[in-house]
Simulated assay, not measured.
Amino acid sequence: MTKQIYFLCTGNSCRSQMAEGFAKQLLPADWTVASAGIEQHGLNPRAVQVMAEVGIDISQQQSTLIDPAYLAQCDLVVTLCGDARDRCPVTPPSVKKLHWPLPDPAQATGTEDAQLSAFRSVRDEIKQRILALK
């Protein structure tokens, strides 16, 4: 039986997109994987860049809004920021929820290298958390 997982963030531009990319590669084939946001901020180019560094192409993924019908059918919903956790639509009791309070790499400041370092750090944390779901 297929399982559904949903990664939710505020803008569906960085963390949830990276999580979707890793989950599609690392979770068993019987999982349906999607990500969405409370708002649509577009796909962050640095997220695409740091995922490509580990061999995962997320460049064709789209920033989308939460689909209440998909959400209600999920086995697992993972929020990656407090905003998504607090503003996420109500889910049925059958839906397991996890919260991964990861910093938003898009908020990183400083040099290009410093900003990319923030994206890599969050990327690596997401990968470890997804591996732990298997």
Rank of each mutant, 00 (worst) to 15 (best):
T111E: 06
D67I: 06
F7E: 05
Q17G: 11
Q60R: 12
T2N: 10
Q60W: 03
T32N: 13
T10Y: 02
S94D: 11
S16Q: 07
Q107K: 14
N12S: 03
I66V: 15
F7K: 02
W100T: 09
P45M: 00
S117L: 13
V95L: 01
S117T: 13
L65C: 07
G21F: 00
G11L: 02
L80V: 13
A106R: 15
F119R: 08
Q49A: 15
M18S: 07
L98G: 00
A84N: 11
L43Q: 10
S94Q: 14
D75T: 11
P28V: 01
P92H: 00
Y70V: 10
A34K: 15
A23Y: 04
L27T: 08
Q115E: 10
G21T: 07
A34V: 13
T32R: 14
D83E: 13
D57F: 00
H41F: 05
K134C: 12
Q73K: 13
I58G: 10
V77W: 01
G82H: 10
Q40N: 15
Q17D: 11
I38R: 08
D67R: 05
S13F: 00
Q25Y: 02
L27K: 07
P28M: 00
C9T: 14
P105S: 01
K3N: 12
L76T: 09
G42Y: 08
Y6C: 11
R15K: 14
A52N: 14
V95Y: 03
Y70D: 00
L80C: 07
Y70C: 01
A47Y: 01
R87T: 12
E112D: 15
Y6T: 04
T109K: 12
I5M: 03
M51K: 04
C81N: 08
C14A: 15
Q60K: 14
Q73P: 10
S121D: 13
D124G: 13
A34D: 12
C88K: 10
S13R: 02
D104R: 02
R46K: 07
G42V: 10
K24E: 12
L71Y: 09
P93V: 02
R15D: 11
A118Y: 05
S16G: 08
M51C: 09
V122N: 07
A34R: 15
P105I: 01
C14F: 02
G55Q: 07
I5Y: 03
H99W: 06
A84Q: 12
K97A: 04
L26H: 05
H99A: 04
I58W: 01
Q115D: 06
Q17R: 04
Q25L: 04
A106Q: 14
C9S: 15
K96N: 10
K96P: 06
K134I: 11
P28N: 01
D83P: 00
E39K: 07
